[in-house]
Design a binder for these strands. Structure first.
Lengths: 144, 144
DNA sequence: TAATAAGTCTACAAAGTTAGTATACTAATC
DNA sequence: GATTAGTATACTAACTTTGTAGACTTATTA
């Protein structure tokens, strides 16, 4: 399951995608509209900023705005930033690899193959899911 | 990520698969061989027993044994029993559905589709992964 | 250039989950 | 009826997640 933090991040980014290239958006506005505790949201946006997904502007009229192109920001990237590994086992994680404590011998482990399969399919789908596509989909769905 | 509990369960079940139809195996033996804290293992095996995956025999010469056919016990079943939902969002879970708090309107939510895709692929792979296949794979790998 | 708006940073606290332990009880076998 | 081994309940410790508080920095604009 995704953490709340991660879900908040996705919703905040969708909100900012809808205002892409329309200047900075004040944290308080995002917090209010998306019902996210402001202080918690601050920490989230800061991480996204440090990862160069967002940029910010200080002072009056400041706020956060999407820096990357929404067609290039994927759910994969967001989830990895917020929640870490995608894989269900540390020993099959590409970005957060660690040997399994429980496993005696990784090369003869019969479990790994299944989880490598799950990982690859998950990566494939989450890589295809960009902010641009999500927002587009929401527009279509809300018209129907 | 799978919990330790779930990984312990998988390893214990693989161990019991290797002794399928060879009579009950004492908890202590499983705990020793798989390096699982005995008391923790007890709770795990009990859950698997209540789900009819295992049966137990009390008294001297007692222990746990695989009740279901190892070709019918899937990773999907084990993970659901130990860790619960497979899906990354509660609102796309088949067995543990709950509406997303963060979501204003499920029918117009552009995020769900991606996670439905992830869920379906994950279910497919985990359903194919039976204890019998895993043990067979381990034998092949350890000979190579 | 001072007032103010708004992001940054550090530290903390409460709540929830996971992992593991202790103890007493029950049932089956020899 | 002594012993072996599973059953059940309750507890504890550690860790993670979620959320809060407050002081600080930077940029704008009057």
């Amino acid at each position: 399951m995704l953490s709340k933090k991660c879900k908040y991040a996705i919703h905040a980014l969708i909100y900012l995608t809808e205002r892409y290239e329309q200047g900075p958006v004040h944290i308080q506005e995002i917090a209010d509209k998306q019902r996210i505790p402001k202080k918690f949201l601050e920490a989230i946006l800061l991480e996204l900023r440090n990862a160069n997904v967002l940029h910010s502007k200080k002072g009056k009229g400041g706020g956060y705005y999407l820096y990357k192109n929404p067609e290039e920001v994927t759910l994969l990237e967001i989830i990895r930033l917020m929640d870490g590994a995608i894989a269900m086992l540390p020993c099959v994680s590409l970005n957060y690899y660690e040997p399994c404590e429980e496993c005696k011998n990784e090369t003869t482990c019969g479990i790994r193959d299944s989880f490598i399969g799950v990982r690859d399919e998950t990566l494939r789908i989450l890589t295809e899911s960009t902010l641009a596509k999500i927002v587009k989909r929401e527009k279509i769905l809300s018209k129907a």
